[in-house]
Design a protein around this nucleic acid. Structure first.
Lengths: 160, 160
DNA sequence: CACTATGTTCATTTTATATTGAACATATCT
DNA sequence: AGATATGTTCAATATAAAATGAACATAGTG
């Protein structure tokens, strides 16, 4: 499955990140790409990656685009080479910030709206709605928690 | 898609949790189940859930089993009724703890092993391996971060 | 015990997601 | 310009995940 021209170190790394990717529901090809870049000092171009990982051009391209979007890989210009080359970003602060920004925060954006809508639906009810109010408050409280926890995680990540 | 006998409040809640579930890569049926229980005061039995959400017995059963396993729904005995009834757990501390315990921590358990294995692979190399060492250290540092962040999240969740 | 209600499983089907690779676009060089 | 190298897209295919529902298991009831 994984090409042979790799050191044990690289193979282990690829496997480790394939696993880590699964843990956060990210495709294995993306885990493999990051795992290889993480364990390889020399910047790699797209063809290097497709041939050593045995994945298709399209897959590698989309994977790199995704990794770049969250800031997990950086584009690097190699002297004399026209091809684009990539290296892994290893700052935990940047990795965490990018991941949270792209994968978590978008889901929270309409949070306020949704809670407001729930509150509205609740006051439309004909019956008394102690219960509904308590649930809306609960939700609002959870929302505040997440809004405070995310920046905290980003900050703490900076220390590692 | 969602049965009509629901109040607006319940419909909104189901939709909200279907969305939230997607955000953490959990099947929609599970989001719907929790959303309905969250917005319904009366304990619900399996048949209530399948009929109002229009999902299959099997799906509802597996979904409830999953929700119970992370501690997001509680089994309740209703006077005179033989059927099992369920209500939503709403303590953020318990929800967070259950989710992290079942979905995140298992992936970390072999973390030590993996890092150790990487270190081993690294010292097997014939070339000097400054680079590999720095990467192994990086990984170990990330690992420490996660190990400290998880308990912190659980603790903070208790305040909400 | 036979009968009914309730709970659970799992082989199949359906649906969603990831991957492929050829076609297309764009840039660089002679 | 034509020729070549590199980058990007996307319809088709393969793979994986979720949902279904009938079959089975178990527990209660008369």
């Amino acid at each position: 499955m994984i090409e042979q021209g790799l050191t044990d170190f690289q193979k282990e790394s690829v496997e480790l990140f394939i696993n880590a990717a699964a843990a956060i529901s990210v495709p294995r090809s993306i885990g493999a790409l990051y795992g290889l870049l993480f364990s390889t000092e020399e910047p790699q171009c797209l063809d290097d990656l497709t041939s050593t990982l045995q994945i298709s051009r399209g897959s590698a391209h989309e994977g790199l685009r995704w990794l770049r979007s969250i800031g997990a890989v950086k584009l690097i210009y190699v002297a004399g080479q026209r091809k684009e080359h990539f290296v892994a970003e290893t700052s935990l602060r940047r990795l965490a910030a990018g991941y949270l920004r792209d994968r978590i925060e978008p889901h929270l954006e309409n949070g306020q709206d949704r809670i407001h809508q729930l509150k509205k639906a609740c006051s439309d009810e004909t019956t008394v709605c102690e219960f509904q109010y308590s649930r809306v408050n609960q939700l609002a409280s959870w929302y505040r928690f997440v809004q405070r926890a995310l920046p905290l995680v980003k900050t703490l990540a900076g220390r590692f």
